[in-house]
Amino acid sequence: MATSTALSTTEAQRRRARRLTGEVLASWLFLLPAGLLLLAFVFYPLFYLLYVSLLHWNLIGRARFVGLANYSSLLQSVYFWQAVWNTVWMTAGTLVITLPLAFFTAQFVHLELNRRLSGLYRSAAFAPYVFPLVASGVVWNLMLQKQGIANWALSLLHLAGPHWLSQGVWPLVSIILVTTWQFFGYYTVIFLSGLQGVPPTLYEAAAIDGASAWTRLTRITLPMISPTLFFATVILVLQGFQTFTQAYVMTSGGPNGATTTLVYYLYQEAFQFFNIGRAGAVSVMLLILLVAITLVQFWLSRRWVNYDQL
């Protein structure tokens, strides 16, 4: 009797063990397709990239190992630094225009419009986000022509419009405008969802205390949606550093490299000049920049982002 119970326990254990290995096997099997694809096209390329950045290679001839030469020549290149600063200014410009605009629009929609209207507004604001960036670039290119709509509107205000796409800082400004137009609705929608998460009781309490609109904004709204603001900032900066399409379609990075972004520079090095190793080094620098900026943002966020939600 005793032996038979002992036997059946081990039998049960064995069966459980078998089921477990079966399950482990099955789960690895399920993970396999996605895992292999991500390995091949996301993770392995990151390491391959490091290697490529140490080569001198034009795709046709033999690759030559040159150590850090690509990096040192990049750091001494005027064009590289121009691309870095263009990208920084473009991203900063988009940030300071888009986020406040989106925030106050969201605030207005949230407070002043009824449900139906705000739903309608949300759809309208979101529409540019699904419009192809290439197509936006073409339309804006038309509007920003010397005789385009933008300058006509300015002439109504008795202002002389610039040559938007070819003069001074205006090409950079034009790209910031297009980027803002394209993504502003997206951030409005994100902020709207943040605002909807603030409990109305907080405002009611503030109203009883006689708090002004400014106090309500700085003491309740901003702290309460600071995680959303932080998230939007991180995403916008990441996106800003990847700007390519606008520069390609609207200005071809010009005039004289005035709108060459880092990714556009990378594209030129890799696919126009076939300096594969140099392009690899640009990618690595971009990666380092992105990681550094994101880390700094997270570090700074401890000072202003409030996660003690109600």
């Binding site: 096209f41 996301v42 390329p45 990151l46 391959y48 990378l266």
Partner: peptide, 13 residues
């Protein structure tokens, strides 16, 4: 990891 970063190695693949 954005697509733009890995474009060179993936192109080589």
């Amino acid at each position: 990891v954005p697509e733009q970063l890995t474009v060179v190695p993936v192109f080589l693949e």
